[in-house]
Amino acid sequence: MIPLTVIGGYLGAGKTTILNKLLNTTENRRVAVLVNDFGSVNIDAALIANQDGPVLELTNGCVCCSVQDDLGAALEAVRGMGVDHAIIEASGVALPAKIADYGRTWPGYSLSCTLVAVDASNIARQRKDKFVGRLVDQQISQGDLLLVTKLDLVASLYATEILASLPEPHVTANHGSFPFGVFFALEPSARAYQADDTHPRFHSHTMSTDKVTTVEAVTAILDHLPPSVVRVKGWFQTKEESWLVQCVNDRRVINSLGNANFEPATQLVFISLAQQLDTELIKGSVLR
């Protein structure tokens, strides 16, 4: 069975940018990307090993297949190519859950997860749009994980508001970069315990305390998190000042916020592929 990931989201949400980045960063993994049309995918001509109709074979072993209104034909074309993973780029008007059903229906495939890209700079307007507001809301509600793009185009105060308006879990993916691991995180064997596919595959765990801590203690926690944690965000307070934490897989940003005061003093949210995360243990470590 080929694990299948769906990336959905409205037009302009950054799906293609993310897939472009992904095709250039897959290591030792043969990925097939099923896109709406080649035109939008920016593939370096030097990377193309072979083209056969709607299928492009790349020199790194990856495959790019144009769907052209016949997803079934594309799935059949890709099926026999010996790829490790397939990713469908849903069209801007598609309901991601509907596309994800292909992973449960089409012989030879198994559903990995559903990601939905969200354009932070336009989402507020889109959700109020008379034509697509309901569609965008539905798309957002159907992601196991939201990939929030273009957050850098939004004024920082407003960014917090926008992120707060989106259902958890979500990660930011500026300029197409984000933890690509989530595309492949859920191999069928790794999620065998999940008999019911209707659960979100990502889980949010919150740790909060009114006590102050140290940068070293938080850093130590982040260094030793289990690999199932793909994202950490939040803040903490030391004796001198407050700090903002943003971690995406191995990228980590800890910024000083000066003497701003938060309530509670320390709060960290962990987005994990695992249902269980011992936040009490983490709290103990932070306060050590």
């Binding site: 037009l11 302009g12 034509f131 697509v132 569609l135």
Partner: peptide, 11 residues
């Protein structure tokens, strides 16, 4: 339930 668009209004 909601209907569907066959392409985005922008497209």
């Amino acid at each position: 339930h909601h209907g569907e668009w066959l392409m985005t209004p922008e497209q």
